[in-house]
């Protein structure tokens, strides 16, 4: 049994069916990429897994337990971290306060909290330099680091990242995704939603392609990267690259 198993999720916004039966697995320590166009249902999938949305039917099984219906704040405690789309850092709080809140559930364990914070600062030294600054004054790249670091403070078994490279320069995007690979190498499972399909497939182990609420393709990342349909739809193909 996989660490995280999603089975036949159907999610509605009012009468509109956003997810029409999504199923996916994530094994321990692997990076699973979720690709797809705008409005395909990638963000909805992550928000449903983390409990911010409730599916009409379907199950999300984490470590053998169905977590559908468990409150979002309790799901974090089970070991599912979620870096939401748009970073959603707490702009009026300092960098350090943002990180502290990431460890809200272990707030009474000062030593553990400090150790995790030190680990995050080691991963992102820039954050350590700016720890007393208000998070809203950080650059886009630093805000993304903070959003990831904040989620790591809960020491998740599964880290879900929604468009971590969005709005970043290509160089910064690569550096952020490289860090994601490092996090996975330390044993954390990563569920990665990315619009940058090329780079996502480069660091992922497996990938799913979602279109209008359904999974249309799945497989090993290295194989999907060479798949004709994926190339055409998400990787721009040879022609697009030369004409750009």
């Amino acid at each position: 049994m996989a660490l995280l198993e999603v089975r036949d999720l159907h999610v509605f916004y009012g009468n509109i069916e956003a997810l029409k039966g999504i199923s996916l697995d994530a094994e321990e320590g692997e990076i699973v990429a979720i690709l797809g166009g705008n409005g395909a249902g990638k963000t909805t999938t992550l928000r449903t897994i983390s409990g911010l949305l409730r599916p009409r039917t379907g199950t999300v099984t984490f470590q053998g337990r169905n977590i559908v219906g468990v409150a979002a704040h309790a799901i974090v405690g089970l070991g599912l971290g979620h870096v939401p789309e748009g970073r959603r850092i707490f702009t009026i709080l300092s960098v350090e306060e943002n990180l502290n809140l990431g460890a809200y559930l272990i707030r009474s364990q000062g030593a553990l909290l400090r150790a995790r914070k030190a680990a995050v600062y080691q991963l992102f030294p820039r954050l350590a330099e700016r720890k007393h600054q208000l998070a809203g004054t950080l650059s886009g790249g630093e805000q993304q680091m903070l959003a990831i670091g904040r989620a790591l403070m809960s020491d998740p078994k599964v880290l879900m990242l929604d468009e971590p490279s969005l709005g970043l320069s290509p160089l910064l995007a690569r550096s952020v995704l490289k860090t994601v690979r490092e996090v996975a190498n330390d044993g954390t499972t990563v569920l990665l939603v990315e619009q940058n399909a090329r780079q996502a497939l480069a660091i992922a182990d497996r990938a799913y392609v979602i279109e209008t609420g359904r999974i249309v393709l799945e497989g090993k990342a290295s194989i999907l990267a060479t798949d004709e349909r994926v190339q055409k739809a998400y990787l721009g193909g040879f022609e697009a690259m030369t004409s750009a």
């Binding site: 409990g51 911010l52 979002a72 704040h73 405690g77 939401p84 702009t91 809140l101 809960s154």
Partner: peptide, 21 residues
């Protein structure tokens, strides 16, 4: 920490939920 969580709620409820608040 709970006071910090109060201030965080002024910014973003969903993000606060994802912190375990």
């Amino acid at each position: 920490m709970i006071g910090t969580a109060m201030r965080a709620l002024a910014v973003d409820h969903d993000a606060a939920r994802l912190m375990g608040i």
